[in-house]
Design a protein around this nucleic acid. Structure first.
Lengths: 345, 345
DNA sequence: GTCCTGTTTCAAAGCGCTTTGGGTATGATA
DNA sequence: TATCATACCCAAAGCGCTTTGAAACAGGAC
């Protein structure tokens, strides 16, 4: 069933039917109802493609998910972020077009989405410290919101981010207050902006307390369980092993816990650990006391907010760039405790 | 830049330019090259919407991801499956349209995708035992491939699945061969087809060895870490605790491991565990010996195959339904060992 | 030179919608 | 009665592409 047919059965013109359904005022309420009912009955819905062509709006948002070229790892936070964004899109009648691409293909994909007119806007995932995608998108004139930030000053763009630096300095301070002095950092790849910020926060806290920076305690890599396991294991095997860890993802923390337990240490007693927790739903901390002390911030909420922001930008293209800083709470769980004198073996 | 402009700058008609770019034979090789180069230079790409409207093909596939209504849990295997499917789509010039919906909204969304002509086909995720979506899609005439199966006999449809029943009977048999007799099942929700099949496999193995079925050893719920933790803890606290577990997901297994270790038991020695492993990339078992003995099957590969199948169905609509059964290998890891006499406390 | 065949190109229709720029009642006003 | 808003509705253009049916041209056969 299409507009033409629907109009014919109603004995009205396409114009009137179209207007009736889109809520234009110049159509009698009685006719509008008649049209509405007929549309309902015949299960009519305007063809998206035709509508887009006529209006020039694609009514779709692009998400280009990066995949690590070496290990083909897809970071699970994207699924959760997108779950949040999707809610918003559905509510506003937008579609979500997803593609998954290696870093080196991202620019090409943006270009394509633009020149094929497939989308009205883009969410930029996983920004690097000085991410060329920002300038690219500004040049080709495609509205976008960054999930995270880049550190190029003077660039004006819209973003939604959590206060990573503050979260990690807070976490580190918390451990220092518990008496820990040798604190390890198990971080993401530090060309990623979020990871570099977290490192900053960690280092700042150490500096504040005159604790020297020890690069043997700092790891950075793709955030997998095995990475958490292996780095924690290596760290705990050091002659001067750390007594506490600050960790960049829940999954990495799980790997670290595995290493800790395998070495017959007890998390929260022999070793303390604070992780960042994106509140992935299947790790839902629906427990009285969470297993990990964590800096917690809902990535699904970030998805919702970023999507709303992008739709708003599309609606009001002339406005100045917007931004929103979500804060991460420090939630105390079972994985932290006071520093104890070196264990006797 | 659009077709008309490109044609004008070249001094050719739109017809010729369009044909040149789409590789039709009735255009001289010299002109084709001229067109190609000009298109390249001006970064021309056909407007997807206009193209779809003209051809009647949306060049897009819909994925409707279910989200658990109670806990809003998004199962992480979807991200991985979609990563696989996306590869295929990109290669064939298709887009992937994603929406996330509660179970009760799924039918409506399928209907909308169809009547709005947004997609040429659909991947059905997370089928239930007698899933009404199959008939719905057949009725409205939208090509689809199911990731998994439904148990309604006589329904002809296309699917990609793993041999869940066989995998779980194999796992259970393996534990029985190790001397275990009290074997617990920590399963997904058993109205889901995959979960009911796994239960079948588990029960079959017990029956074969004349081991009575004990429903106090069987759990079924949404596959989260906390669920794994709580159910394992409850099971191990039984007067007649199980000595082995068969578990439906890697994440649940991680929760179970947490419970096991918290009770000062050693996995692989005091307690054995076999999990299903969908090979989620961030849990990549890139270790010499995997931490868990597992029935392993790549869900990303399933995504690739399902996508290929769907595109093939769209291309050849008259063919009979296709199907593909992927097998899960049993990979022996560190989490299983021979049964020991009851621990002394 | 004419006719035919095959190659290369084109004009125009059509996909299903929105939207512009009228048209035609209807009723109030002078 | 003529005039003018006002309310309601319509025909047709246009969005950017594919595709049909036909035209123009070249080359070979006669």
């Amino acid at each position: 069933m299409n507009l033409k047919e629907l109009a014919e059965t109603l004995g009205l013109s396409q114009t009137t039917v179209s207007r009736a359904l889109s809520g234009y005022p110049e159509v009698k309420e009685a006719t509008r109802n008649r049209v509405r009912i007929a549309a309902e009955q015949s299960n009519y819905r305007p063809n998206t493609r035709a509508k887009s062509l006529a209006t020039g709006r694609a009514m779709a948002i692009g998400h280009v998910i990066p995949v690590d070229s070496k290990n083909e790892v897809v970071n699970p936070i994207f699924a959760e972020f997108i779950a949040g964004a999707s809610e918003t899109y559905t509510r506003h009648g937008y579609e979500l077009i997803l593609s998954i691409a290696h870093d080196e293909d991202q620019a090409r994909i943006y270009n394509e989405l633009k020149s094929k007119r497939s989308v009205d806007g883009i969410i930029v995932h996983a920004p690097r410290i000085a991410d060329p995608r920002i300038k690219l998108l500004q040049n080709i004139g495609l509205p976008f919101v960054v999930h995270g930030r880049v550190s190029d000053e003077g660039k004006e763009y819209s973003w939604v981010d959590v206060n990573n630096k503050r979260a990690f300095s807070r976490a580190t301070n918390f451990l220092i207050d518990l008496g820990h002095r040798r604190i390890a950092l198990i971080n993401g790849i530090e060309t990623m902006h979020f990871a570099s910020q977290r490192r900053q926060g960690y280092l700042n806290a150490l500096t504040e307390h005159n604790i020297p920076h020890d690069t043997t305690l700092m790891y950075a890599a793709e955030l997998t369980e095995v990475y958490g396991y292996q780095s924690a294991k290596a760290l705990l095997s050091l002659a001067e092993a750390p007594s506490a860890f600050v960790v960049s993802s829940y999954i990495v923390a799980i790997g670290a816990r595995r290493a800790i337990e395998e070495m017959d240490l007890k998390l929260g007693r022999d070793v303390s650990l604070i992780t960042h927790d994106d509140e992935l739903s299947y790790f839902s901390s629906a427990e009285d006391i969470p297993q990990f002390t964590a800096t917690r911030s809902s990535v699904r909420q970030a998805g919702r907010r970023a999507a709303e922001m992008l739709l708003d930008i599309i609606k009001h293209p002339t406005h100045a760039p917007r931004s929103e800083l979500l804060k991460a709470e420090l939630m105390v769980g079972l994985s932290t405790g006071p520093h104890r004198s070196p264990r006797l073996t």
